[in-house]
Each structure stands twice: as C-alpha cells, then as structure tokens.
Simulated scan of single mutants.
Amino acid sequence: MRKVKKAIIPAAGLGTRFLPATKALAKEMLPIVDKPTIQFIVEEAKKSGIEDIVIVDGKSKRSIEDHFDSNPELEANLRNKHKDEALAEVQKTTDINLYFIRQPYPRGLGDAVLTAKAFIGDEPFVVLLGDDMMKSDVPLTKQLIDRFDQTGASTLAVKRVPHEDTAKYGVINPSAEIQPGLFDVSSFVEKPAPEDAPSDLAIIGRYLFTPEIFDALEQTKPGVGGEIQLTDAIDSLNRTQRVFAHEFKGERFDVGSKIGWLETNIEYGLTHPQTKNDLRQYIEELGAKLSKEDAAQSPKKTK
C-alpha cells in the first residue's frame, strides 16, 4: 500500500474575520503566544511522518514564506549573543520541505485543494486546515494515517458539536460504526440547518484522501457561497469508493474566530514555560477584581 507522505495546507483565505490586523498580515501568521498558528499545523504534519508540504496561498501571504525561510542576519545576531535557545527555535522553521502554490482566485476550499493536484500526483495525501489546532497524545493527522493503513480508503476527521452549531460545519450522515470511532458514511452535508442535520458529527480540519478526490473536485459545481465545496466533492467520491469518518476525541481549538483565538492563547499561555506562572496569577487577580465589581453592582437587599 502506498504511504502517505504529502500534505496540503490551504492558506489563501482573506482573513476578513480578523480585519484590520489581516489587511497586510496573513491570518495564518497571527501568533499563539510566540508561534504563528500555521507553524503548529506544519509541526503536526511533520510529527505525523509527512515529508513534503505544499501551502496553497494567495496575495498578501508573503509573510508565510518569509517565516519558513532562513534569516542569516538574525541567526548570526542570535549566535553572537549566545542566545542558543532562540536560535534553535528560529532554525526549526527551516527544517521542513515546504513548497508554495498560488490560488489565483478565492473559489473555495475545494478549489484550493485542486490547485495542488500536480504537486500530489497519484499519491494519497492529507489536508490540514489552519483554522483548527488539535491537541492529543497522537497527532490527529497520524491517527488518520493509521486508519488509512488499515482501510486504504479516504478518511476525514469528525468531532461531536452542539446540535445548534451544525450550520457552521460539514456534517456526516453515518450509516454504521464499523470500529470504535470509525464510521461508514451514507452522505456528507455542507452546513445544514440544525433541523436538517443528520448527526452531530461535524467535519473538522483534517482530511486524508486518495488521489481520486481530484476527479470529484473537477466535476463539482459551485455550491454554498458560490464556491467549490470540498464537502460536495467528498460526497461525490463516496458514491464510487468508500469514505470513512474518524471521530477525534482530543481537544480542538478554533483559531479562525476572535474568541477562539483568544481562548487558544490563554490555554497555550498557561502551559508555556515563559508565561504560565505570570498568566495564572493575572487570571486569578482579574477574577477577584471582576467578582468585586459584580458585587458592587448587584442591588443591595433591603430589610
């Protein structure tokens, strides 16, 4: 069986939810404490055994390429000042086989994946979305690869969400749980209204595909939002070959929204060796301050 060694990271979105910060800065470069979100995604792929990664980008994304390029002046400065720990962190970003392809027009996630067809060739591959950061003992991408090694079939990651949130996601209609956490799927629905959602199992930002997904994408017509929807192509592929869904039991952080990005910074900051103690103290002090303010604003009881 062919091994999964290639990955696509779509990064061509305009990042409108983070304007004005993303007017000139790639959304994927917004930091979680001290590391850009896209670096977490690249590191997950690398830890999962991926050897070659293509980032599908767009205009105003040059900062991503610069981040993963070498910076001899900075490295020399850190070396001369004996800042060995910082130097090691900087050099880590260049120890990756990265390639870049431009998506000319924002035609949707499906089109972004199709843009990388020539890079992938006739091989299985994974797709990692930058808006989703995952936390688990075994990287989610590696979990999908392990499933593929068993089944040889396309497999995507799903996670249970509150039923009222189904309109934010692609959702699966499972026909059977063939192994614990592995579902055979009848159909895939893009952003269904809660009353129409076939389940609470939402597709999250990790996919493993056989190369036949490209044929499905080429035949997919624009769907929701006038874009080429990856979920529609997956549903089409499922009619000709089995597509499985793997339930992720770890933690997922949505860094594509303002509140999700803030929450992720706090969570990561509470584990970062340089920030965890001070941040915990600040949160405790802030909690005490807010409690006092709430108490002062509460109406006093009268006898």
Score class of each variant (00 low, 15 high):
residue 102 R to W: 06
residue 102 R to S: 09
residue 103 Q to H: 12
residue 103 Q to I: 09
residue 104 P to V: 06
residue 105 Y to V: 15
residue 105 Y to I: 15
residue 106 P to I: 11
residue 106 P to F: 11
residue 108 G to Y: 00
residue 108 G to S: 01
residue 109 L to R: 06
residue 109 L to N: 10
residue 111 D to A: 14
residue 113 V to I: 11
residue 113 V to Q: 02
residue 113 V to L: 07
residue 114 L to F: 05
residue 115 T to W: 08
residue 116 A to S: 08
residue 116 A to R: 05
residue 117 K to V: 11
residue 117 K to H: 11
residue 118 A to E: 07
residue 118 A to V: 05
residue 121 G to R: 13
residue 121 G to F: 14
residue 121 G to K: 08
residue 122 D to M: 14
residue 124 P to H: 02
residue 125 F to L: 06
residue 125 F to K: 03
residue 126 V to F: 12
residue 127 V to Y: 00
residue 127 V to K: 00
residue 128 L to F: 13
residue 129 L to W: 00
residue 129 L to F: 01
residue 130 G to A: 02
residue 131 D to S: 12
residue 131 D to H: 12
residue 132 D to P: 05
residue 134 M to Y: 11
residue 139 P to E: 00
residue 139 P to H: 07
residue 144 L to E: 08
residue 145 I to H: 07
residue 146 D to Q: 13
residue 147 R to E: 15
residue 148 F to T: 14
residue 149 D to L: 13
residue 149 D to S: 15
residue 152 G to D: 06
residue 154 S to N: 01
residue 155 T to Y: 00
residue 156 L to W: 01
residue 156 L to I: 11
residue 156 L to V: 12
residue 156 L to R: 03
residue 157 A to Y: 02
residue 159 K to Q: 03
residue 159 K to A: 06
residue 160 R to L: 02
residue 161 V to P: 00
residue 161 V to H: 00
residue 161 V to S: 02
residue 163 H to Y: 12
residue 164 E to N: 13
residue 164 E to R: 10
residue 164 E to A: 13
residue 165 D to Q: 13
residue 168 K to P: 00
residue 168 K to S: 02
residue 169 Y to M: 10
residue 169 Y to E: 08
residue 169 Y to P: 13
residue 169 Y to F: 15
residue 170 G to H: 12
residue 170 G to D: 05
residue 172 I to G: 00
residue 172 I to C: 01
residue 172 I to R: 00
residue 174 P to K: 03
residue 174 P to I: 03
residue 175 S to W: 01
residue 175 S to H: 09
residue 176 A to S: 12
residue 177 E to V: 09
residue 177 E to M: 10
residue 178 I to F: 13
residue 178 I to V: 15
residue 179 Q to K: 15
residue 180 P to N: 07
residue 181 G to R: 01
residue 181 G to E: 02
residue 182 L to N: 09
residue 182 L to M: 13
residue 183 F to C: 04
residue 183 F to P: 06
residue 184 D to S: 05
residue 185 V to Q: 06
residue 185 V to N: 02
residue 186 S to Y: 01
residue 186 S to D: 04
residue 186 S to N: 04
residue 187 S to N: 10
residue 187 S to Q: 08
residue 188 F to D: 03
residue 188 F to I: 14
residue 189 V to F: 11
residue 189 V to S: 06
residue 190 E to R: 12
residue 191 K to E: 02
residue 193 A to H: 15
residue 193 A to G: 11
residue 196 D to V: 15
residue 198 P to A: 07
residue 198 P to G: 09
residue 199 S to L: 14
residue 200 D to L: 05
residue 200 D to N: 09
residue 201 L to N: 04
residue 201 L to W: 01
residue 202 A to F: 08
residue 203 I to G: 01
residue 203 I to C: 12
residue 204 I to Y: 01
residue 204 I to E: 00
residue 204 I to L: 10
residue 205 G to I: 04
residue 206 R to N: 07
residue 207 Y to K: 10
residue 208 L to Y: 03
residue 208 L to V: 15
residue 208 L to D: 09
residue 208 L to T: 06
residue 208 L to R: 06
residue 209 F to N: 03
residue 209 F to Y: 07
residue 209 F to L: 05
residue 210 T to D: 05
residue 211 P to V: 14
residue 211 P to L: 14
